[in-house]
């Protein structure tokens, strides 16, 4: 038994030495075999010798062999990694050689802009919701103060599926649904897909994105509308933006409010980006129409609210230098 213990200690010191001295992976393979090969391995031989011991001997020496085995295996593994690290220091490695990027996934530009906007509105206590894209005339028009034949339907050449079923022409239909379903106070933002029966060209597509939202509570006034949306413009375009507030009619609101951003390219002089206007219209807004609140079962004498809406695609195209809306939804690739 003692000879066996001696052997263990001998093998331990000898092989640790040899593993430490090994200079390549091949040498480690040889050492592994001479230790653990089924036929000739010295540790395997120890196992066989162990079988000859009595129970007490087995109980004492067995764990020692196991311990030796795992320690040497660890040593071998560690040395292997050391050798690999060493290879990294190969003089042929030239770190100044120009690098190439690995491909990392990218979110769609519109998704990125939506998330950026969501972040702002979530900070101000808004939830983000969605609605159906297949809608009824009831929610897309009627509840939104757009009776049949209303001149505003001029702007909304609608894609119909059946008599009063259509593809939503604006995300406002979500407003009608939420006002009907939720009890105030409500604060929501809703990015969404919209469809119109447009002759398709580089700036108009039948398929596009809008971002709308509203807040309904006791005591909301146009001061809050201006306050929140000014903060939004600063968040999106920088603190030095110059804004212009003007009356603008939308059937879903009264009073309506248009907000323009002084063109950051030409500083108001007029250029291609602002279509020579000097100002860029980012969104339309206003106080939710008295009749809409009433139609949706909310008492407009108790609650007031503001709503805003904007197209996303033009902003996205400007940011990413895309000149054709059709490319944005099917014609772009990421490198």
């Amino acid at each position: 038994m003692n000879t066996l213990k001696d052997k263990i200690s001998e093998i331990n010191s000898e092989y640790r030495q040899r593993i430490g001295d090994a200079s390549d992976a091949e040498e480690l393979d040889t050492l592994y075999l001479s230790l653990f090969s089924k036929k000739h391995g010295v540790v395997t031989a120890l196992m066989k010798e162990l079988a000859g011991l009595d129970t007490e001997g087995k109980r004492e020496v067995g764990p020692m062999i196991n311990d030796l085995q795992s320690r040497l295996k660890d040593e071998l593994e560690e040395k292997r990694r050391d050798l690999q690290d060493h290879m990294m220091q190969d003089p042929l490695i030239d770190l100044t050689y120009p690098e190439k990027p690995a491909v990392w996934g990218m979110l769609h530009p519109t998704t990125q802009l939506i998330r950026e906007m969501n972040t702002f509105f979530r900070y101000y206590g808004f939830s983000v919701v969605e609605g159906p894209e297949i809608e009824t005339e009831e929610f897309n028009f009627r509840k939104l103060n757009l009776p049949e034949g209303h001149p505003a339907t001029d702007l909304q050449d609608t894609l119909y599926i059946a008599d009063d079923i259509l593809l939503t022409t604006h995300t406002s239909s979500i407003e009608a649904r939420l006002l009907t379903q939720q009890k105030p106070p409500i604060r929501v933002a809703f990015p969404g897909k919209c469809y119109r029966n447009e002759t398709v060209n580089s700036t108009n597509a039948a398929f596009f994105h809008q971002y709308q939202g509203f807040a309904v509570d006791k005591g909301i006034t146009m001061e809050h509308l201006k306050g929140v949306l000014e903060a939004f413009h600063k968040y999106l375009f920088g603190d030095d933006v110059i804004l212009r507030y003007r009356y603008k009619y939308y059937p879903e609101v009264s009073p309506g409010l248009g907000i323009d951003l002084k063109c950051q390219f030409c500083h108001g002089k007029g250029c291609q980006v602002c279509r020579q206007r000097g100002w860029i219209e980012v969104l339309g807004s206003g106080m939710i129409h008295y009749n809409i609140l009433k139609n949706c079962g909310i008492d407009p004498e108790i609650y007031t609210g503001f709503a805003w809406g904007m197209g996303l695609d033009r902003l996205v195209m400007q940011r990413y230098g895309i000149d054709d809306i059709r490319k944005l939804y099917g014609g772009i690739v990421y490198k």
Binding site: D217, E223, K226, G227, Y245, Y247, L257
Partner: peptide, 28 residues
């Protein structure tokens, strides 16, 4: 509606005369 008349007053008085305010109600 009455708010349309309110809109007339506010716009002729100039929207720039309306001060900015953030919402101070508890978030829903």
């Amino acid at each position: 509606v009455e708010d349309d008349v309110a809109a007339d007053i506010l716009r002729i008085n100039n929207y720039n005369a309306i001060p900015l305010r953030l919402m101070n109600m508890a978030p829903p």
